[in-house]
Structure formats: structure tokens, C-alpha cells
Nucleic acid binder design. Structure first.
Length: 452
RNA sequence: UCCGCGAUAGCUCAAUCGGCAGAGCAUGCGGCUGUUAACCGCAGGGUUCAAGGUUCAAGUCCUUGUCGCGGAGCCA
């Protein structure tokens, strides 16, 4: 018994000395200069110079160039590195040195190299160009690339900044259900599912439940996934996307626009400040982002129609919805996001409050992002009038029974209230200036696309 | 759902008028002590999306289908 035990202890000591240097994440390597540390990650890329190899190791927090000199590591380790395929998982130990020739400014002079797993097949995604179809089919691997890292880090910051702003401005997070008994707005296509034998639908908005929560808590927001079964194949549509929806009691159309522009400004400025490196990876022109500061210009639907008639479609009919080119045209008139308010009542959801002075338009507003990104926010003041909503349900051919609870909110202390929904993916696409929202979420769900 | 374009090596693409299936990258082997999407040499790699048709001959022309991309509508 004594001998094997001693052997185990001996092995353990060797491991401690040779492989178990302090494990450091790449983003923190600058604080370990001249120290010997271990980095755990994946072999992103490699350049073989004969008796010198450059390994670029990625650990999720960054990429570090590791140099292996033939004389500095064991012959076995050197040979193993030479034959390690791309994306093999590795553990490298070496001294951290400032090195101007290395990308990132730091380099690891390797003394120990260990392969956790040698990649078993040729890694499909090479440093060269690929088509979008191929990349989407390999989305699970594409996420390892620097561009996707930058986008998803910015997404995380956008979400964090949004929630932080709401949390510190009196809004309470009260999430709303994802399984719902009926269409919230009754217009768009919903994904149907089976709820104990009864039809149920994946939510397309937390809107109506938000109103109940606002009457209970004053200022609330929900943050969650939203589902639309529309057969839309465009650069701005996903079947599953995330939306943040603030809603508050005693709020008006103007209050909504004030809150939304403050929130969006905070988010944009936070990204600018905290994600400069990621914006640089994406080659984002940040002067456009610097301009995203409240107040935002506000124009009425009527004025927007005038712009379209003057600079685009001269025959644009009052009452029509804006198409993508129309939205682009309107947003091009301004260097920051623009609110378009007082849309025709007939165009908007049944619960929007009509303008008392002019009932053919309602107290709604959309926020159009610049650079052609279109509508990133939709919202407005909700009707607080029981009789009006009853009439609206009828007009929109919606059954009353599923909305009884919603009508109750107008019976027990009804107050003016407002809210809005911000599309997370569109906001990410805009702030990152991406061609398509499919890159703004780790695994996009699009029409007829569920793999991976 | 509608309109347009496309599908050839693992990837990105080429192939003239219908006449021998090609390149770069990737991969494998060899060389190189400062590479940055390295470089040099050698090698392997194809059901040309599917089914049918025209033809002496089809990657190429015709028909149908499948899938993808771009745009529109609808929306955040």
C-alpha cells in the first residue's frame, strides 16, 4: 500500500510544479507580467516556423499569442503542438511578456504545453472567407470567432445597461407569461402550442399583462423572449426575439417619449464607453453613436407623410403604414433617432388611446433608428376608457371573454398610462451596424430555420 | 406569400458557342527562430443539388422539385 501511495504523491507534486501555475484568464494577463501562468483555452490559429511556433489561444475572454521555441519545451510537447489541429483544447504555461510584435501587446513564452483534446476532425471554419449559409449551419462553432464575440458582448452590455437604467429609475421587474391564451393584438400570426389539451400561444408581447402589473406596482417592466410566426424573411426579422417593455401608471405620450429617449441614450453611451474594443473589432463608426443623446427629434405622422411626399413617393396616401424605404427616408432627415407620433388610430393596436382633440389619430409613437435600421421602439398611451375599449374589441372582431380581466383594469381606478417595447436584436444590429439581425443572438430562430 | 438570383472539391469561386472538371485556401507530409489571413516544395481530394428530357456529346440547354441568398409585404 505504501509504494503506490508514494507514487501518487510524487505524480501530484510533479503536476503541481509543471502544469499548475496560476490559472489566469487572458483578459487579465496584463496584471501578471513577468509571471509564469497557465492559460486554458482553444487553439484558434497557428503559425509554424520550424523550430519556432506561434500559437494563438482563445479562452473566451481574449486571444493570446503563445510562442513555443523548440529549445524551451519538451520535444514531446513541441511535436504535439506541431500536429495539434485548429480548435484543439489546450493548456499552456509560460511567462507573460509585453511584446509589441504580438497582437494585443502581450505574449506567452511557453514552457509547458498540454493538449486537453486534439480536435478529431478538420475544423470547418477557417480564417478565410465563408458564405452566410455555411456560417449559419455552423452557428455553434461560428460563435467562437472574434466578430461574434464582439457582437454578443455588446448585446450583453445593451441588456445590462437597459435593465440598470430601469432598475435605478423606479421601474420594477415584473415578468409576464410566455404561454398565453389568445393573441395580444389579434393581428399577427402566433405560434400555437398545446396546453393540457387546450390551444395556447407563445406570447408576442407582454403588453396587456404589463398594464395589470402597472396598476399594481406603478412602474414596471418585463424583459423576455417574444414570438412571431410571421412569414417574414428580411434583415430585421426573427421568429424569436427579445423585448424589454416598460409600462407605467399616470404616464402620457410625452412621458413615454421622455423615458424612452433617456433610456436609449444611456444604453448607447454605456456601449460607447464600455465596449470600445468590440466596436473597433466591428469597425463601427462611433461618431454616429456619440450623437445618440436625448432629446431626440419628434415629428408627427402628418409631418412624416409630408417628408415622404416631398422626397420619396409623391402619391403616398395618408393612413398607409410606412414601408422600409419610407422609414429610411424619414430617419435620414435626422442624425439621431426620431420619434414619429400620432399615427392614424386605424393603423395601430386596439388599446391605443385616441387623441381626444382628433380621434382619427392616436397617442402612439415609434422610434425610428438612423442609418436605415427602422423601428426599434413602438409604444404610446393606452386607452383608460372602458366603453371605448369595449367598442374597439368589437371593431377588431375580438372576443370579449378572454379580455374580461383587461377590461377590469378600466373599472377599478382606471388611470392614464403608457408604455413601450424595445426590440433588443434591432437595437444590437443598429448599435453594431450589422447587415442582419441574425448575428445579434446566439442561436437565431428564423422562418423555417431551427438548426442548430 | 410574391419578385429576382443562385446551388461545381471541406470552404470561396472559375470553366468561352454544348466538346478532357480547374484555381486559391483548408488538409496530409517535408523545410524554415518573429509569424500576424506567413512563405517554399510535394501529395491526396468531385454522384457538378435531385429527378426526368433534348443531343453523337450536358456543369452548361429544357421541365419539375428541393434548398439557400437578396428584396417586398408584415412587424420590434
Amino acid at each position: 500500500m505504501a509504494r503506490p501511495r508514494a507514487t501518487a504523491e510524487f505524480k501530484s507534486k510533479i503536476l503541481t510544479e509543471s502544469f499548475m501555475a496560476k490559472i489566469v484568464r487572458i483578459e487579465a494577463l496584463g496584471q501578471s507580467q513577468e509571471q509564469t501562468v497557465t492559460v486554458q483555452g482553444w487553439l484558434a490559429d497557428k503559425t509554424d516556423k520550424g523550430k519556432l511556433q506561434f500559437l494563438r489561444v482563445r479562452d473566451g475572454t481574449g486571444v493570446i499569442q503563445a510562442t513555443l521555441f523548440h529549445k524551451s519545451v519538451s520535444p514531446e510537447a513541441f511535436e504535439a503542438a506541431k500536429h495539434a489541429p485548429q480548435e484543439s483544447s489546450v493548456r499552456v504555461t509560460g511567462q507573460v511578456r509585453a511584446e509589441p510584435r504580438a497582437p494585443g501587446g502581450y505574449e506567452l513564452s511557453v514552457t509547458e504545453f498540454e493538449i486537453v483534446q486534439a480536435a478529431r476532425d478538420e475544423y470547418p471554419i477557417t480564417p478565410k472567407e465563408h458564405g452566410i449559409e455555411f456560417l449559419m449551419a455552423h452557428r455553434h462553432l461560428w460563435l467562437r470567432s472574434s466578430r461574434q464575440h464582439a457582437i454578443l458582448r455588446i448585446r450583453a452590455t445593451i441588456i445590462q445597461a437597459t435593465r440598470h437604467w430601469l432598475d435605478t429609475n423606479g421601474f420594477l421587474l415584473v415578468d409576464t407569461p410566455i404561454l398565453t391564451p389568445a393573441a395580444v393584438e389579434g393581428t399577427t400570426t402566433l405560434f400555437e402550442t398545446d396546453f393540457y389539451g387546450e390551444p395556447a400561444f407563445l406570447t408576442q408581447s407582454g403588453q396587456l399583462y404589463n398594464e395589470a402589473n402597472a396598476m399594481a406596482f406603478g412602474k414596471v417592466y418585463c424583459f423576455g423572449p417574444t414570438f412571431r410566426a410571421e412569414k417574414s424573411k428580411t434583415r430585421r426579422h426573427l421568429s424569436e426575439f427579445w423585448m424589454v417593455e416598460p409600462e407605467w401608471a399616470f404616464g402620457t405620450l410625452d412621458d413615454y417619449m421622455n423615458v424612452a429617449e433617456q433610456m436609449v441614450s444611456h444604453v448607447a453611451q454605456t456601449v460607447l464607453k464600455e465596449r470600445a474594443a468590440e466596436l473597433a473589432v466591428l469597425e463601427r463608426d462611433t461618431t454616429c453613436l456619440e450623437k445618440i443623446v436625448a432629446p431626440f427629434p419628434r415629428i408627427s405622422y402628418d409631418e412624416a407623410v409630408e417628408i415622404i411626399r416631398a422626397k420619396g413617393d409623391a402619391n403616398f396616401k395618408w393612413g398607409d403604414d410606412f414601408g422600409a424605404p419610407d422609414e429610411t427616408l424619414i430617419s435620414e432627415q435626422f442624425d439621431r433617432p426620431v420619434f414619429v407620433h400620432h399615427y392614424p388610430t386605424a393603423m395601430k393596436a386596439f388599446y391605443m388611446a385616441p387623441d381626444p382633440q382628433r380621434p382619427e389619430v392616436c397617442l402612439s409613437a415609434d422610434l425610428l433608428a438612423p442609418e436605415g435600421y427602422g423601428e426599434v421602439i413602438g409604444g404610446g398611451q393606452r386607452s383608460d376608457n372602458l366603453e371605448y375599449l369595449e367598442a374597439q374589441l368589437e371593431k377588431h372582431h375580438l372576443p370579449r371573454a378572454p379580455y374580461e380581466w383587461y377590461l377590469d383594469l378600466r373599472k377599478y381606478g382606471s388611470v392614464p398610462h403608457c408604455g413601450f417595447g424595445l426590440g433588443v436584436e434591432r437595437t444590437v444590429a443598429w448599435l453594431c451596424k450589422l447587415d442582419h439581425v441574425r448575428e445579434t443572438i446566439s442561436f437565431p430562430r428564423m422562418m423555417d430555420k431551427m438548426y442548430p
